[in-house]
Design a protein around this nucleic acid. Structure first.
Lengths: 353, 353
DNA sequence: AAAAATGATGAATGCGTATGCAAACATGCA
DNA sequence: TGCATGTTTGCATACGCATTCATCATTTTT
């Protein structure tokens, strides 16, 4: 059982292999100038000692931590975000970056979190479902740390951002509802201070207005329960809505459950419901939710590529990308006469702003 | 607009403040021996330069990274795990630890992931929904890195582990089903190689056996869809089951949907369904799932405390904790004659093994 | 065969911080 | 005033690696 060795260092490996510490370093640096023979010697000695390069020391030396800071919210309340996190994590992983994670709650101030990331000299920062203060944005750019926003639109910063075209999504929802003959519609918002919710609302309103309609607005707090309660309020209205568009799927599902189980309403016969995101649950037979799908994989790919490019090429130019969502028509909405049942998915596209 | 300063160092701050670099270091080290007056000078200079200590350098020097490695699986397929992640992340956060995250898929080998964590000299490792090879366990203990398993039972390692009492949970499910007069039951397993699923199955079988019953077993692959398919298979059986116990809630929900929407079965009138975890969805009116609740917060608290204690006190003793779950009776199961409708929650307790 | 180019190697240094140690200083007490 | 005690301070060094530079060994060129 012999050894009680702990974290061998490159110097120890060097001694055992009969070479210099530099040689050990080179053996573990792809593309470094080192003879095949000495490399073998080094690796053998390394194995014997259970040596593994110390990434902390390397980071200090290279001034690259190979760590990406990810800040994410709503992980437990919206199944959309675990998917985002999963995809992000895998992408960075396979691109050789580690992930330092911060899960934040709505009331947590990002300005307290970011310094903790910067402390570790992360190579880049990815924020999702979180808004960046301009002070912090400035701080990041001062430090040369690229920032990418996912699913939040930019203030005036030079952070990149990758979003679904929320305004157009709102319009699509409005069009579908109007084409299928609804006259009194409602919007269940997430909150008053989130770009996603505001933009979806805006597109929805705009399109409705063209036809002289105006939606009720109710707060759903971005949660199942909040939307459940919102739906009940809507149904108490003198002229209750015959269609409800929700700022995301989880709220749409809350509305659906409220309508069916608390209000004894038939969906879609009496009330249509439409969501946003297309989370897996939306396709479950209990819900069969009509929704606007966010092309998550594509968006994540772009976001990750952009961030890594800016890190590696030291590019300063940031990018604002808007990705068109797909309308997925299921059975929570009445069908417009022109459409047959089942799926109808509009083609999607990516647009640079 | 002046400065284009980038990442000031303690030496620069020292110069500006007219003190030594040591003084700067001490100003940022709680409890260090430094006069109040010089501390003020330092902090002022630091603010002026936008200085923030470099955690990487500190880690190298102190041999403490203040980073916890978290490995987690099933983040997108089981809502239970985002909750776990959220709780873990917050606890570590408020205890001054950062989190390095690895999201793994079932087919990914942990033995490829752990080295990536060890490379960064994480202070501790928390694995959830992931199994540790004994080689890697040995490697960690060799390096003095404490490991904690959450929701997986230990092989023979000296890793700590925090689990729900799955066997007892299985028994509780069996008892409830038998008391409410079921005669042909089934178990929808997750997989054949996961302790949680196996233990829940074992407890379930044991208790049934006492009364001469034996369950059908079907694989649900730990997913909604897998369980959906499993339920359909079960219903094709010559003597189809009148009750189904699932290794977790997400599968129970898949079974429920299959029964109601694909098999036109009434739940609980024709078939009872019972799950495990008590994820938020279980309480939704569409499902109203009877289940065994895992006291997540309590378990996480214990796990985090244990891991941090072992890190700080350099304790070697690991801990195996088994937490009793609570039976939450909702409306997906027929009620035994003794019980009235609504909730029945058994008291829970923690047991050390 | 000599000169030039190429490749491999090790010594030395730097990355930014923490900390042991000894010196300097302040304080209390007799 | 003198000495003992306690507090601050700076110097020097270590942490583990990457990398520059000069040196030396090898190969290629003419």
């Amino acid at each position: 059982m012999a050894e009680r060795k702990v974290n061998a260092t490159s110097t120890q490996v060097a001694k055992l292999a009969g070479v210099s510490q530099s040689a050990v370093s080179r053996a573990f640096t792809p593309g470094a100038s080192i003879a095949e023979s000495t490399k073998r010697k080094v690796l053998q000695a390394a194995r014997k000692l259970g040596y593994q390069p110390n990434a902390i020391a390397r980071s200090l030396s290279t001034k690259r931590s190979k760590i990406i800071g990810i800040v994410i919210a709503n992980v437990t309340t919206n199944p959309f975000y675990p998917e985002v996190l999963d995809a992000l994590s895998h992408r960075f992983q396979q691109r050789g970056q580690r992930v330092m994670l911060f899960v934040v709650t709505r009331d947590q101030n990002l300005d307290d979190i970011l310094p903790q990331l910067l402390e570790y000299r992360v190579d880049g920062i990815l924020l999702t479902a979180a808004t960046l203060s301009s002070a912090m944005a400035h701080e990041c750019s001062r430090l040369g740390v690229p920032v990418t926003l996912f699913n939040r639109s930019v203030p005036d910063t030079n952070a990149s951002s990758f979003c679904c075209d929320n305004i157009e999504g709102g319009r699509m929802a409005a069009r579908l509802l109007m084409e299928s003959g609804h006259h009194q519609v409602a919007f269940v918002a997430g909150s008053r201070d989130t770009s996603t919710s505001l933009e979806r609302e805006r597109g929805f309103r705009e399109e409705l207005k063209k036809h002289g309609l105006e939606p009720y607005i109710e707060m759903g707090k971005f949660s199942y329960q909040g939307a459940f309660d919102a739906a009940r309020k809507l149904m108490r209205l003198p002229k209750s809505p015959d269609a409800v568009f929700c700022a995301n799927d989880i709220m749409a599902i809350g509305v659906l459950d409220a309508l069916r189980h608390a209000e004894q309403k038939k969906v879609p016969e009496e009330v249509s419901v439409i969501g946003f995101d297309d989370i897996p649950m939306a396709a479950w037979p209990s819900y069969n939710l009509t929704t606007i799908r966010q092309p998550i994989e594509r968006m994540i790919d772009s976001a990750v590529n952009d961030l890594l490019d800016r890190i590696n090429q030291n590019t300063i130019v940031s990018k604002q990308e808007l990705v068109r969502g797909d309308l997925v028509v299921r059975f929570s909405t009445k069908l417009p006469s022109g459409l047959s049942s089942g799926y109808v998915i509009s083609t999607s596209e990516t647009r640079n702003v």
